[in-house]
Design a protein around this nucleic acid. Structure first.
Lengths: 120, 120
DNA sequence: ACACTATTCAACCGCAAGGTTGACAAGCCG
DNA sequence: CGGCTTGTCAACCTTGCGGTTGAATAGTGT
C-alpha cells in the first residue's frame, strides 16, 4: 500500500473521532497545550494526550517546545490531501447524477423522481 | 451529540478504510452490484456487502433495485458536508500560518524557518 | 412449485481503538 | 538538590471493527 494511501487512512481515521475533530476545531483558533485542551473534556489528561498523538501521527498537527510546554498546532497540509480526495469523488458523483438526470428527462417525459432510494 | 456530528462521524469513519475508499473510487465510474464489486477484492462477498452497508449508513451511497440486483451508487451530498468541514479548518490553519509568518518577518529580520517541528 | 441467483443475517474470532489508573521522564524554579 | 508542573509510557479492560463461514431470504425464470 503506497504512502499516500496510508496517510489518507490515518487522516480519515483520525477525524472519525468527534473528540479529535473538536480538538482540531479548538486548535484552529489557537495553539494550545495538552493540559489546556484537556480541561474542556470529561476524560483524563492521558486520554487527550493519546488523541493528540493520533492527530500528530496523521500529520494533522505538529508539536513545538517552549519551556516545559509542548504546544500543539494545526498543520494544513494533510487537510489539503483529504480535501482533494473528497472533491474528486464529489464532483464525479454530481457529474454522473446530472447525466442520469438528463438521460431520464430525454427518454421519458413524465418521470417523477429518480431519488426513490431506500436510505435505510 | 447532534445529527450533523454523527453524520460526520460515520462519513469519516467509513472513508478511513482503504477498501471502502476503493469502493467509492469504483462507484465513481459506474454503479455496480455487490457481486461485481466483490470480484476485485481478495475477501468474501459478505465482507464486501458489509462494507457497502457501512457506506450506506454513512450516506455516501444508496441502493436501488432492478430485478434481483441491488446496484450501489454514489451519493454526493455527504461528500459536500465533509468537504465543507475540512475546507473550513484547512483555511483557518493556513490563515494562522500566514499570520505567524508575517509576525516572524516583522519582529526578527533574519529568522531561518518556523517549521522546526518534530514530526516524530 | 422449483431451482437458481444475488444478497443479507447470524454467530463467531482476533485485534486494534478508546478509555482507565499508576508510575515515570523532562524542564523549570525556589 | 528538592519539588512542582507538564506530559508521556505501560499495563490493563471493554468495545467495536474487519474478517470468516454457514444458513436464511428475496426475486427470477421455467
Amino acid at each position: 500500500m503506497d504512502e499516500r494511501t496510508e496517510r489518507l487512512n490515518r487522516a480519515f481515521a483520525a477525524l472519525a473521532d468527534p473528540t479529535r475533530r473538536d480538538l482540531v476545531a479548538r486548535l484552529a483558533c489557537d495553539d494550545a497545550t495538552v493540559g489546556e485542551l484537556a480541561e474542556h473534556y470529561d476524560m483524563s489528561l492521558q486520554a487527550v494526550s493519546k488523541h493528540v498523538k493520533v492527530l500528530g501521527d496523521a500529520g494533522l498537527v505538529t508539536r513545538s517546545r517552549e519551556a516545559q510546554r509542548r504546544p500543539v498546532h494545526l498543520d494544513a497540509d494533510v487537510f489539503d490531501l483529504m480535501s482533494k480526495w473528497i472533491e474528486r469523488y464529489r464532483r464525479q458523483a454530481e457529474e454522473r447524477y446530472r447525466r442520469l438526470d438528463a438521460l431520464l428527462a430525454e427518454t421519458s417525459g413524465d418521470h417523477e423522481q429518480h431519488t426513490e432510494t431506500e436510505a435505510s
